[in-house]
Design a protein around this nucleic acid. Structure first.
Lengths: 198, 198
DNA sequence: TCTATCATGTAACCAGTTACATGATTTT
DNA sequence: AAAATCATGTAACTGGTTACATGATAGA
């Protein structure tokens, strides 16, 4: 059913998206990724960009269209999306929207080891996290407001809305969790179980 | 400030955690990871386990303690955590709890490209996702209930609680989003902007 | 004109995954 | 006793990151 993608790196998806409307060379792609703020939701470096472009070309999703040279600058190769590339893009996007992926947030691992920290310390650390989250939420809100003031339509901000919803939920969960951790019953049982170690 | 970890793979963190209480060989580590369900929140394969163990040894966080042979089975090398390994573990864990990491859920990327899908289709796909999420939520609930029935204490289920909270929040966000996408104003403006393309 | 920074890319290295190997035990 | 599966690991390949290179433009 779900054929594994030939080029699974999400960076490849956004490269295809940009090439949908016009051929571009890698460097320009990089500039647009940054300019559009998409690099906030993707792991992007120039090197990985060149790599991904190469992989896409090998897979036949894009083709080298021409090589231009501008003065004495290095040659830039311009790539265009192919028909199979277009198909791949839409299939992939639909899949990502419709099917939750298995992802592995590091915080879940940390939580699974939370019993190894003394309750007092755990609570202090979780509060610190909550503060950091609050800061990030404010930054995101500001970013969105500025975008809106500049006439950006909401559809181009859904990913930020989503991030906000997630951070908000995490924050509420943290409140609940710290409250459970300060329960005297838990503190006592922690001391009985782990108090001797360390 | 935040020294980059010598062995950044989260699998290394849980390996250190298990070795905290006793020396083990890689295969046994793998069994325990699976047995404890920790493999649900981490990317784990046998090969990556061997790799990580090797990296930890190179970094001095664990040491080869002895090599035992049991009949004609391959030799198993038993590893023990070192003092610097212990320090690394606690520092790392504290950091993960206190500082939100930058992570890159694929769904955020998909959302940032949502405008490329026709509103009707986008809504249909999002509804499908929501159903899938509901199923996962139910599975997790069941898992937790079974664990509790078997006497597992809540502290060993916090990571599942967290996952639940996140899935729940995502689901609520999806409701909001689909409702925005069915707004006639949006549908019209989409047709004006993208209706011509494909 | 010297220095800094931009523009553009390559190369070398390390991490992670997939595929393969092989004796031991269990099932039919 | 043949087939399946468990126990245990190695090897080969591919992806991704860090470090390096070098001419062009802009600022002091």
């Amino acid at each position: 059913m779900d054929r594994r993608r030939k080029v699974p790196n999400p960076l490849a998806l956004v490269v295809l998206a940009w090439l949908l409307s016009q051929p571009l060379h890698p460097y320009e792609l990089g500039r647009r990724l940054q300019g559009s703020g998409q690099d906030r939701h993707i792991k992007y470096t120039r090197s990985s960009l060149y790599m991904v472009v190469e992989q896409l070309a090998r897979a036949g999703f894009i083709t080298e269209q021409e090589t231009v040279r501008d003065g004495q600058r290095p040659e830039r190769t311009v790539y265009a999306i192919t028909d199979t590339g277009r198909t791949e893009f839409y299939e992939w996007l639909r899949g990502l929207v419709a099917e939750p992926q298995d992802e592995y947030p590091q915080f879940a691992v940390a939580l699974s080891l939370l019993s190894l920290l003394a309750p007092r310390e755990a609570v202090a650390l979780l509060r610190k996290r909550q503060e950091a989250l609050t800061t990030k939420v404010e930054e995101t809100r500001k970013l969105m407001q500025e975008a809106i003031d500049n006439g950006v339509r909401w559809i181009f901000l859904v990913e930020e809305q989503y991030a906000l919803a997630m951070m908000d939920a995490e924050s509420r969960y943290l409140t609940e969790l710290t409250s459970s951790l300060t329960d005297p019953g838990y503190i006592r049982s922690w001391q009985e179980t782990f108090g001797s170690i360390t």
